[in-house]
Amino acid sequence: MSKKTLTLMSKDKQLFNIEEHLAVQSVTIRNMVKEDGASSVIPLPRVDSETLALVIEYLNRQQAPEEDEDYVKKFVDERGEIPTLLELAQAALDLDIKKLMDAACMKVADLIKDFTLEEVREALRIENDRTPEEEKAIRDEFQWAF
């Protein structure tokens, strides 16, 4: 009996094949397979192809269970770019792959915890959407945090 293969489609319509028994590490995919057999292509409209390629690389790992912890740490360590890690964390959340999500989030926390607020804004590419008055109000309420 040949191993069943699933096809996943990224946001930008790229197709990725993965063996079903590996894909079902994702709880989201597992539930879909259970519900409708998932014979056709599974669309993942929130995951871009680069991120999906990473997720599939992770799902395809050949680690013994006891080495898994170390593997997932190393896996996210090698992808030290914050935007990449955030995309990965979001994809892992959507696909419900808990270990990957936790490791990616922990890595981001580790990277940004020594940043100044300005540096965090820069790293996450966000602009301050508050007025100076609002900012002052928050600084007053959470004095202890600043």
Binding site: A109, R121, I126, R139, F142, A145, F146
Partner: peptide, 20 residues
């Protein structure tokens, strides 16, 4: 939330100022 959970609360709370 998950990212902030891995940080000391002092820093986590400071992020409240980053975005509404």
């Amino acid at each position: 939330v998950s990212i902030l959970s891995y940080m000391p609360i002092k820093y986590a709370a400071a992020t409240s100022i980053l975005l509404r």
